[in-house]
Amino acid sequence: MVTPENVSSYIQQGLECEYIDVDGDGRHFEAVIVSKAFEGKGMLQQHQLVYRALGDRMEQIHALSMKTFTPEQWANQA
């Protein structure tokens, strides 16, 4: 079974993250991802970067809900 730690590791292998938090039950996952790679990109493009980082591993994940932020957006969340 895929764990939240697995999903986090998979994403980080393909995408440099300043912060990542993944929660889930083995099939459904929620992720908060902060990356400089998101700068200048819309939400769809940001999510595509995450899916690209996951690659074929996405087949093991039934559902992935994500919130993506640039470092600046993340800093302004507080």
Rank of each mutant, 00 (worst) to 15 (best):
Q77K: 11
A53Q: 00
D25Y: 06
D56F: 05
M58L: 11
C17I: 07
P71R: 12
L44R: 12
A53Y: 00
G14P: 11
F29Q: 08
Y51I: 02
Q13V: 11
L44W: 06
Q77W: 05
L54W: 00
E18L: 13
S35G: 05
V2C: 10
Y51Q: 03
M66E: 03
V32P: 04
Q48N: 10
F29R: 09
F29L: 08
L64C: 01
G40W: 03
G26C: 01
I20A: 11
T70Q: 08
D25I: 10
M1Y: 05
E72W: 06
V34W: 02
Q48H: 13
E18Y: 14
D23T: 15
S8M: 07
K41Y: 13
Y19M: 02
R27D: 13
S35Q: 02
E16R: 14
T68I: 06
G40P: 01
M43H: 08
L44D: 09
H62F: 14
H28E: 11
M66A: 02
S9G: 06
A53I: 01
V22I: 13
A37V: 05
E59R: 07
S9W: 02
A75H: 09
Q45G: 11
S35E: 03
S8L: 05
L54P: 00
A37S: 12
Q73E: 15
V34N: 02
I33D: 07
M1Q: 13
G55P: 12
